[in-house]
Computed example of a mutant assay.
Amino acid sequence: MHGRVTALSLADIQIRDPFVLTVPDEGAYYLFGSTDADIWHPPATGFDCYRSTDLEAWEGPIPAFRPPAGFWSDRNYWAPEVHLHGGRFFMFATFTAEGRRRGTQILVADAPAGPYAPWSDGPVTPRDWECLDGTLHVDDGGRPWIVYCHEWVQVTDGEVVAQRLSDDLRAAIGEPRLLFRASAAPWARRVDHPRVPPGVDAYVTDGPFLHRTRDGALLMLWSSFGDTGYAMGIARSESGRIEGPWLQDADPIWAADGGHGMIARTLDGGLLLTLHQPNTTPLERAVFRRLREAGGTVVLDAVTD
């Protein structure tokens, strides 16, 4: 993906972990995600993004982030999310390097497409933890939190964790709070992997994303593996606060070889579920599906086209 091309369709764009930023002032959408052709092996290139006014024809790739000289990470540039906060655009993205723990670092830009530059001093997730897929949540009191995954490769039963951020989003403050473990979801299934010892049940957590419904319910999308491969479920906070307790839906909202999603607000006020499918490199593509709120949750409505 080099140089700028116009009128790309989603079928033309190899991308994992798609994230749509809606910019009403421009009447436009920006699509971010893991965009290196091989996200699993070094060297990493950076993150590209794509711009559209109708969610169908996309302009790009636009180089949103390229690592500056001396940047600490050279591999596994994963799952960038962009959030407008305090008038600036903050990217939460996962990085790692040889001899370093994987973690989420925060970058900043003054325009939706960047260019993004490091903002936090390395990862804001705990330096001795294997973490990924940090997302921003701002609670009813206006306090920012990062919600992220403590990886199954370190804890076996993957965890979703919340931690307060400083108001300027430069650093984590306070202690991590365990929200739930992957095995709490009835739909989640153990994974077989060479790094899992015989007889040990390992469960994956990926891609948390928070959504507050119009009636005040606090929902979380997150991904793991189900009966038919990579999947995405919904957890809901019983208290309506990030601290929970969190209850898991019995069945995933997306069950068939796709996941790591988020919920975007469309320019017409609707809701859009994003995910990648299939979960196989280099075939993965962004998939969009309309959602609607019903009974304190979200349900699939219809395809965008």
Rank of each mutant, 00 (worst) to 15 (best):
L210N: 07
G207L: 06
G207N: 10
W187N: 01
P194T: 12
A185Y: 03
D201G: 12
R181K: 13
R190N: 00
G216E: 10
F209G: 07
F225P: 04
L210T: 14
D192I: 11
H193S: 14
A202S: 13
R212F: 09
S224K: 07
F209Q: 10
R195F: 12
A182W: 02
W222R: 06
P208A: 12
A184V: 12
F209W: 15
L218P: 01
S183M: 01
A202P: 06
R195N: 11
W187T: 03
T228W: 06
T205W: 03
L210F: 09
A231K: 04
R190W: 00
S223N: 05
H193F: 04
W187M: 04
D206C: 06
R195I: 09
S183I: 04
Y203K: 07
D206N: 13
R214I: 03
Y230W: 11
D192M: 10
L221G: 07
A188V: 15
P186E: 00
G216F: 15
D201I: 02
V200E: 11
G226M: 07
P194W: 13
A184Q: 14
A182Y: 01
A188W: 00
Y230R: 04
G226T: 08
A231G: 08
G207H: 07
V191F: 00
A188P: 04
S224A: 14
A231E: 10
L210W: 10
P194K: 12
A188D: 02
V191Y: 00
V191C: 00
G199D: 06
V204E: 01
W222I: 09
R189V: 08
V200Y: 02
P198R: 08
T205Q: 10
A202C: 13
R195A: 12
R214M: 05
T213W: 07
G229W: 02
G229V: 00
R181T: 11
D201R: 14
R214T: 13
H211W: 14
D206M: 03
Y230L: 02
D215H: 09
R189A: 13
M232K: 10
T205H: 04
W187G: 02
G199I: 05
A182M: 07
A188K: 00
R189K: 15
S183P: 05
R195W: 15
A217N: 12
P197H: 09
L219I: 08
V191I: 14
L218R: 01
A217L: 07
D227G: 15
D215K: 06
A231T: 13
W222C: 11
R195L: 11
G226R: 08
G229P: 03
S224E: 09
L219T: 05
G229L: 04
D227Q: 15
G207P: 07
H193V: 01
D192F: 05
D201S: 14
A184S: 13
D192C: 11
D192A: 14
S223G: 08
D206R: 04
M232H: 08
L210A: 13
H211D: 03
D201A: 15
P194D: 08
R190H: 04
